[in-house]
């Protein structure tokens, strides 16, 4: 299994450094939480690692493979897949067609998780209940989130980055997705979840990385990290105590 290494990377939007000379390691064989207040650069981190917004300087390594500056589709072939915080799929495509895109284009020898063989298998694996011939324009938000995970899994990733896949889901749906993430991890995929709900992080993740203003604020086992004064301060403001 593979981890991700980031070495001295910066992503700037005009004067704003959304990722600021960041160096960190994401351990293999783990479910890692990537946390931080809104605007701390979590989504930008995913965009950077997946090649959508290449970093200015620095290096991104997938295990020992440098993927810095590669096209996003090449990075997918190398084994990194990501989901989008706000899923935007063409409304006129069906569930089956959306999942079939990475199945056809992200060629690799890695097996699909859960013994899946087709788009329909993957849809079922991710808990999508509507028929695979349903058009995406008719799916609920929680089904769009599941479809986004299924699409990412169809890339046959070694490393999967989930950007707020559970935000806004009901408790029941959240529990299902937690179970799904555990399953994906058990099938040998390194998982990174961006998440705000501490309860979920505590249940799901064995490692946590905290970003603040594009820099690494803290990392370590979730119970320790979540109780650190600096982390609480970043979330809640200076001088706030519980």
């Amino acid at each position: 299994m593979t981890g991700v290494r980031v070495r001295g990377c910066t992503v700037a939007f005009g004067g704003l450094r959304a990722i600021d000379d960041l160096t960190l390691d994401i351990p293999a064989n783990a479910v890692t939480a990537l946390i931080g207040p809104n605007g701390s650069g979590k989504s930008t981190f995913v965009n950077m690692v997946s090649g959508q917004i290449p970093p200015r300087g620095g290096q991104v390594l997938l295990d020992t493979d440098a993927v810095t500056g590669l096209r996003p589709d090449r990075i997918v072939h190398k084994g990194l897949a990501r989901t989008y915080q706000v899923p935007r799929v063409p409304k006129e495509l069906t569930i089956d067609e959306v999942i079939s895109v990475p199945l056809l284009y992200a060629r690799s020898d890695r097996p699909l998780p859960g013994g899946a063989r087709s788009a329909a298998d993957l849809a079922r694996y991710c808990g999508l209940r509507p028929e695979v011939t349903t058009r995406c324009g008719r799916l609920s938000v929680s089904d769009l989130r599941r479809l986004e995970i299924a699409r990412a899994l169809a890339c046959r990733p070694r490393v999967l980055l989930l950007d707020e896949s559970m935000a806004g889901l009901s408790l029941e749906d959240t529990d299902q997705v937690i179970g799904l993430v555990r399953d994906i991890h058990a099938s040998g995929v390194t998982v990174v979840v961006i998440e705000h709900v501490m309860r979920i992080i505590a249940r799901l993740c064995s490692h946590a990385i905290v970003l603040n203003q594009g820099r690494l604020l803290a990392e370590g086992p979730p119970p320790q990290v979540l109780t650190m004064a600096s982390v609480r301060e970043a979330y809640l403001g200076k001088g706030f105590t519980l």
Binding site: Q52, R71, D73, R88, K91, V101, A154
Partner: peptide, 13 residues
């Protein structure tokens, strides 16, 4: 057409 970033993130050249 709809979302080229999503296409690239799905392995499409």
């Amino acid at each position: 057409r709809n979302n080229p970033e999503l296409a690239a993130a799905s392995g499409v050249p």
